[in-house]
Write a protein that binds this DNA or RNA. Sequence first.
DNA 1: AGAGGATCGTTTGAGATCAAACTACTTGCG
DNA 2: CGCAAGTAGTTTGATCTCAAACGATCCTCT
Lengths: 162, 162
Amino acid sequence: MAGEKRLVRRNKNGAPVPASVDFGPLAGWVGFNLRMAQEAAFQAFSRRSHDIGESPGRFATLMLIGRNPGISQTELSLANGRDKSSLTPVVEDLVRRGLVERKRMDLDRRAYRLSLTAAGQKTLASMVRAARRHERVLDGIIGARDRARFLDVLKRIAAQVE
Amino acid sequence: MAGEKRLVRRNKNGAPVPASVDFGPLAGWVGFNLRMAQEAAFQAFSRRSHDIGESPGRFATLMLIGRNPGISQTELSLANGRDKSSLTPVVEDLVRRGLVERKRMDLDRRAYRLSLTAAGQKTLASMVRAARRHERVLDGIIGARDRARFLDVLKRIAAQVE
DNA sequence: AGAGGATCGTTTGAGATCAAACTACTTGCG
DNA sequence: CGCAAGTAGTTTGATCTCAAACGATCCTCT
């Protein structure tokens, strides 16, 4: 309808220059910016944890098992915010690599009790160090003054969105 | 190492009661809470957009095309924060359903110029209405006082994380 | 003009995730 | 006790995503 906007400018060499894109209302919406921020932070942490040979998805899993020895897979999936079926291959892999131990419960032989092995605790410790470095970067961007309030808003969103 | 914590309490009926899980340092980390908040918000919007028969992933795509007629797929993927290869099936589907029009560029016959059809604009409009309702819910949770600052922090994270 | 290198979009392969169907087991209730 | 209903974990099928390799096209430079 309206005239088409020129999106690709070219510099004197003819190389395309990243155009300025109109985000419209997206620019002011929380949902969109939440996604962009989360994905940027995730990618950054992904690179970090790749250096120590772990994927970021395993990190929360290891931490939750370490902090809650004897936890079941269903409880873990709830705390972690993923479907229990997603956890099956993850736990399988962690057990296979000797980081997590899995025992049947006595009272309920459907369920497992998960706990870290010594190797798992070591891996967790090195992931914690990587995570702390990552957090320091984020803290630097957020600023000490805004941090507590920002975190509080995030928690409220996670808890209160229907 | 330390004694195992009792995770599953049972009520008088013997039914398991959601246990209180120890999140350890995760509770205070931005990265983890960012993920939880984003996923909660995404799920909520997912339900909303499902009502009008669209997936949330298509929403930003339609908006960016509508706001930037003639945009190429690569520019779109950059603005949208997804790999260009992820866009191939999405655009294919939007074209097939008559929401998006795709023409070869004159100057560069490798690239496409994307634009919305009339039907695409209608669909976008109804998604915008759904998004506005979603945003109102988020705004209610965040609170008017914190909103601007919260949004600013999100933008800084998206832009500055290496 | 023509070779070499860059870029656009697609294809392919791998991985993560969800939801629903399934199995083993347990609980509730007559 | 014994059957119906519920629960823990797995399997299966679908979707979304990325990264790398690829063909077609474009640009640069001689």
